[in-house]
Design a protein around this nucleic acid. Structure first.
Length: 801
RNA sequence: GCGGCUAUGGCGGAACUGGCAGACGCGCCGGAUUUAGGUUCCGGUCCGAAAGGGUGCAGGUUCGAUUCCUGUUAGCCGCACCA
């Protein structure tokens, strides 16, 4: 009979649901395993063929864990707030909540169609008030601890979304989402002080199992650098403070540069002899986006401040001060000491403005270019530092400055605080009230969730205010503290707010007294294994670690790190090797593949497609290979076989080897070779017909990958229970080994032939066997055997003279 | 510019800590079944008639290198005036 995957898959999906086979148990005595995937954004397009790759991978891991006796939590939910839904709602005049509901329905049926072992009783939805109540609660806790604050600052403004973006959401000067131009704009924004956690986010990464690439990316993003802050006296009396990683080069500081936004420019306004020119430069800089500022600045620009100057604290010499947009207001102190002899940017600037270039570390030629690669050099032209190696000079100058109150050592980070406001409707309302008398006051916990009101129009106003700003009856409220009239915050939170902590909710999703109970958190967290996209390393992954650390600090979660292990998958590309996208028209719809070949085939194929961590192009023909494999499995076992449940003599070795290989490969996410092993096993079974025991092992190993067919054949064979719940098999190392070994025989390192010897043969035996081979004997005839190298059970190399 | 990763048949990809390169699958070729196509099954498939040669390219270390080292080229990713 032909394998009717459609009815078989439907049958078992129904059965699993009825049995609640994949429900995780709170309060179990069993060891736990918490496997996590990044929950999807339920877009209108439905599930994409890219989704099943990470989902199937973690499904395989968790199915194996369940078979190994772990109380296993493999949850799913929906990250449902966000712009695409809101835009769709605007366009089609449907409430975003309705759109979300429909999309979640579609996603759910597609996920069920693929047979994932999710615990469907723990589904969460970030736009559900019962959920976002806790997102708001976390925000209030952060506010109470001073980690959420409002600040007027230049922000990234997407001209099309009419919305503020986080730095992380701006890619090459355009909006990550819509690709439109991003410009700079002053706005009062809610901010989260992630910088306060920079050090710990960096250091604690050592305790997380994480691919090196991700670790490095995080490191660079946080960007810790060690240096010193140094005060330069000015002719105006006050001091100008700079941050430098090279205090040792202080004698070479021949001018200073401050960013166009530097506050001191305001103080000095009436002292500047060229105020107009300075104002003009400031205005021009303000008009540029961050991207333009960095991109167009191939040639350095700047204006020298007329009528004021600074004093180099070690030389005592007066040095000019410039403003230039190559100095960033948001890093360090927004001001630098320029050492053109040893910094490329300063060198270029000095050349352009004809400023003195002094060599302070010997070894380069500062007339030609900045000598920057000078960590091992020796100081020159540097007074009391002369003759010292750079490292010693750093220590000495820092002490010297500290002793005079002119400077201290300082650690700086590239990481900036996180803009947490969005002028949009479809997000969590920020639960803050603005009172004339009391300032910003959080909504009392008893009033959470602060629900999104229904509005007529979801469009952002032209002034860039949230659609909520037009809802006077919602905005007008009373101050929770003093009772005076007050106004609600109209901004909403960004997407990341809900995904920051979602994994915690899975442990206790229906709790209405806390985001999760202490017992549930103690039992389930940290997440044992979290797989997700590499593109989320500096976004979601970093943010959620920050959020979790905060919750740890207030005693709300039991661990300092949320995730024990983080892995990432490559993308599935279209057949043409390009990224799949609607606009290119090369998207593969999983529904079609399932309809034609079945869910098990799709699951198998996305795992077999290639190295899990690398991108791989889709191949419609290769999918068939996986279907063929399942058909062969079906043909082997579609009628009940004879024999006991012991492995057959002919297949015993192959079975033990397969168990060993598949078990190990799943742990290392080498799903492609695990499947190759199963295919080989079936090839072996074709050569030597299997008995029931052989097939039982095959089905158990196959079950995490292709659970439907495995359960069906299991039932046909009449094994106990259900294959999906059957224990994972063990193997006997001794039974994986050959009693006879094929030894490669090399002459001078080149393979000539192979000989067979009993396993464990000593060197002499192998040598004798090799020399007994006619081909080797002929080569060795009349020559001296200079050297013999034997690798036990593997190889012999004969060196002839 | 800086940092990182990758490079193996016609294709996706295997190869443990240096030890028989090309597992497994696709595709292709041949055969069987079939009226034919498709399906299924069997055999073959790195190049070369062979000796031999082959893991982007050029060197090096080693008895032995896809694996380690140096240089180089190409592609991908991250950061991008971070003082």
């Amino acid at each position: 009979m032909k394998y009717d995957f459609t009815s078989v898959e439907a049958k078992w999906q129904k059965k699993w649901d009825e049995l609640k086979l994949y429900a995780a148990e709170n309060g179990s005595e069993k060891p736990k395993f918490f496997g996590l995937i990044e929950f999807p954004y339920p877009s209108g397009e439905g599930l994409h063929v890219g989704h099943p790759r990470p989902y199937t991978a973690m499904d395989i891991v968790t199915r194996k864990r369940r078979k190994q006796g772990y109380n296993t939590l493999f949850p799913i939910g929906f990250d449902s707030f966000g712009l695409p839904t809101e835009n769709y709602a605007i366009k089609n005049k449907i409430h975003p909540a309705t759109v979300t509901k429909n999309n979640i329905k579609t996603f759910t049926s597609q996920l069920k169609m693929l047979g994932y072992g999710f615990d469907w009783d723990r589904v969460i939805d970030t736009s559900d008030p019962d959920y976002y109540k806790w997102t708001q609660w976390i925000f209030i806790k952060m506010f109470e601890r001073g980690l959420a604050y409002k600040s007027k600052m230049p922000v990234n403004w997407c001209t099309s979304c009419k919305c503020v973006l986080a730095n992380e959401e701006v890619v090459n000067g355009v909006c990550e989402r819509c690709g439109s131009e991003v410009v700079r704009r002053e706005k009062s924004q809610w901010m989260l002080k992630i910088t306060e956690y920079a050090e710990r986010l960096l250091d604690d990464l050592d305790g997380v199992e994480f691919v090196e690439r991700g670790r490095l990316q995080t490191k660079n993003w946080i960007g810790r650098s060690y240096g010193a802050e140094v005060d330069f006296a000015t002719t105006e009396g006050g001091a100008l403070r700079v941050f430098t990683t090279r205090p040792d080069t202080l004698f070479g500081a021949t001018y200073m540069v401050i960013s166009p936004e530097h506050a001191i420019l305001g103080e000095w306004a009436d002292r500047l002899s060229n105020l107009g020119e300075v104002r003009g430069y400031q205005a021009a800089a303000a008009r540029k986006s961050d991207f333009e500022r960095t991109e167009l600045a191939k040639e350095k620009t700047g204006v020298r401040l007329g009528g004021v100057a600074a004093v180099n604290p070690v030389t005592g010499g007066e040095i000019p001060i410039f403003i230039s947009d190559y100095v960033l207001a948001t890093y360090g102190t927004g001001a630098i000491m320029a050492v053109p002899g040893h910094d490329t940017r300063d060198w270029e600037f000095a050349k352009k403005f004809d400023l003195p270039i002094v060599e302070v570390v010997a070894g380069g030629d500062v007339a030609k270019e900045a000598f920057t690669d000078c960590d091992t050099g020796v100081m020159v032209n540097s007074g009391f530092l002369n003759g010292l190696p750079v490292a010693d000079a750093k220590t000495k100058i820092t002490e010297w400055l500290a002793a005079r109150g002119l400077g201290t050592s300082k650690v700086n980070f590239k990481l900036r605080d996180w803009v947490f406001s969005r002028q949009r409707y479809w997000g969590e309302p920020i639960p803050i009230v603005r009172c004339e008398r009391c300032g910003y006051v959080p909504v009392p916990e008893s009033e959470l969730p602060l629900r999104l009101p229904d509005v007529e129009n979801y469009e952002t106003t032209d002034e860039g205010e949230s659609p909520l700003a037009a809802m006077t009856e919602w905005i007008d409220t009373t101050c929770p503290k003093c009772g005076a009239p007050a106004k609600r915050e109209t901004d909403t939170m960004p997407n990341w707010a809900g995904s920051n902590w979602y994994f915690l909710r899975y442990t206790d999703p229906k709790n209405d007294r806390a985001f999760a109970s202490r017992e549930a958190l103690e039992y389930w967290t940290p997440v044992d294994w979290y797989n997700g996209g590499m593109e989320h390393t500096t976004l979601h992954f970093l943010y959620s670690r920050f959020c979790h650390k905060f919750l740890y600090d207030i005693g709300a979660v039991p661990t300092a790190e949320p995730y024990g292990k983080r892995t990432s998958h490559g993308f599935i590309l279209a057949e043409d090797g390009q990224k799949m996208s609607k606009s290119r028209g090369n998207v593969v719809n999983p529904n079609e593949t399932v309809a034609e070949f079945g869910a098990d085939t799709l699951r198998l194929y996305v795992m077999f497609i290639g190295d899990f961590e690398k991108d791989a192009p889709w191949s419609a023909t290769a999918v068939k290979g996986c279907k063929r494999f399942l058909d062969r499995v079906w043909n082997l076992a579609e009628t009940r076989l004879g024999g006991g449940e012991a492995y057959s003599a002919a297949n015993e070795k192959a079975v033990h080897r397969a168990i060993k290989k598949v078990s190990g490969d799943i742990e290392e996410m080498k799903f492609n070779t695990a499947i190759a092993t199963l295919m080989s096993l079936v090839n072996d079974f074709t050569a030597a017909p299997p008995n029931r025991g052989d097939v039982k092992a095959l089905l158990t190993l196959l079950s995490p990958f292709a659970p439907h067919i495995a359960d069906e054949l299991w039932e046909i064979q009449g094994f106990d229970g259900i294959c999906s719940a059957a224990p994972w098999p063990g193997y006997d190392e001794a039974k994986t080994l050959d009693s006879e070994r094929e030894i490669a025989v090399q002459v001078g390192g080149k393979l000539k032939t192979t000989v067979k010897v009993p396993a464990g043969s000593d060197d002499e035996t192998v040598k004798a066997a090799a020399l007994a081979d006619p081909k080797i004997a002929a080569l060795a005839a009349g020559r001296e055997l200079a050297r013999v190298i034997v690798v036990r059970n593997k190889l012999i190399n004969l060196i002839l003279k």
